[in-house]
Computed example of a mutant assay.
Amino acid sequence: MVFDLTTVIILMLIGAVATIWWKSKEAQERALLAARAYCKSMGLQLLDECVIQSNWEISRAEDGRRCFIRRYQFEFTSTGHERYFGEVIMKGQRLQNVHVEPHRVSQ
Rank of each mutant, 00 (worst) to 15 (best):
Met1Val: 05
Met1Cys: 10
Met1Ser: 12
Val2Asp: 07
Phe3Ser: 09
Phe3Ile: 02
Thr6Glu: 14
Thr6Ala: 12
Val8Thr: 10
Val8Ile: 15
Ile9Cys: 06
Ile10Ser: 10
Leu11Phe: 08
Ala18Cys: 05
Ala18Gly: 09
Thr19Ser: 13
Thr19Val: 11
Ile20Asn: 13
Trp21Arg: 10
Trp22Met: 07
Lys23Pro: 00
Lys23Glu: 14
Ser24Glu: 10
Glu26Asp: 13
Ala27Met: 04
Ala27Phe: 03
Glu29Tyr: 07
Glu29Ser: 09
Glu29Val: 04
Glu29Ile: 04
Ala31Cys: 02
Ala31Ile: 00
Leu32Asn: 04
Ala34Leu: 04
Ala34Met: 03
Ala34Cys: 04
Ala35Val: 06
Ala35Pro: 04
Ala35Phe: 07
Arg36Asn: 10
Ala37Leu: 11
Tyr38Ser: 08
Cys39Asn: 07
Cys39Pro: 03
Cys39Tyr: 04
Lys40Asp: 10
Ser41Pro: 04
Met42Phe: 10
Leu44Tyr: 11
Leu44Ala: 05
Gln45Ile: 14
Gln45Met: 12
Leu46Gln: 08
Leu46His: 04
Leu47His: 06
Leu47Trp: 09
Leu47Ile: 10
Glu49Cys: 01
Cys50Gly: 12
Cys50Phe: 11
Cys50Asn: 13
Val51Pro: 02
Val51Arg: 02
Ile52Gly: 00
Asn55Glu: 15
Asn55Thr: 12
Trp56Leu: 07
Glu57Asn: 14
Ile58Phe: 05
Ile58Ser: 06
Ile58Met: 09
Ser59Met: 10
Ser59Gln: 13
Ser59Lys: 14
Ala61Lys: 05
Glu62Gly: 12
Asp63Tyr: 05
Asp63Pro: 01
Arg66Asn: 14
Arg66Cys: 06
Phe68Thr: 06
Ile69Pro: 01
Tyr72Glu: 03
Tyr72His: 03
Tyr72Thr: 02
Gln73Ile: 07
Gln73Lys: 11
Gln73Asn: 12
Phe74Glu: 02
Phe76Gly: 01
Phe76Gln: 03
Thr77His: 08
Thr77Glu: 03
Ser78Arg: 04
Thr79Asn: 15
Thr79Pro: 00
Gly80Tyr: 04
His81Lys: 15
Glu82Gln: 12
Glu82Trp: 11
Arg83Ser: 11
Arg83Asn: 09
Phe85Val: 12
Gly86Met: 06
Glu87Lys: 14
Glu87Asp: 09
Glu87Asn: 12
Glu87Pro: 02
Ile89Trp: 01
Ile89Thr: 14
Ile89His: 02
Met90Ile: 08
Met90Thr: 07
Gly92Ile: 07
Gln93Met: 05
Arg94Phe: 01
Arg94Tyr: 05
Leu95Cys: 05
Gln96His: 15
Asn97Pro: 00
His99Phe: 15
Val100Thr: 15
Pro102Tyr: 12
Pro102Glu: 13
Pro102Phe: 09
Val105Gln: 08
Val105Phe: 08
Val105Tyr: 05
Gln107Arg: 14
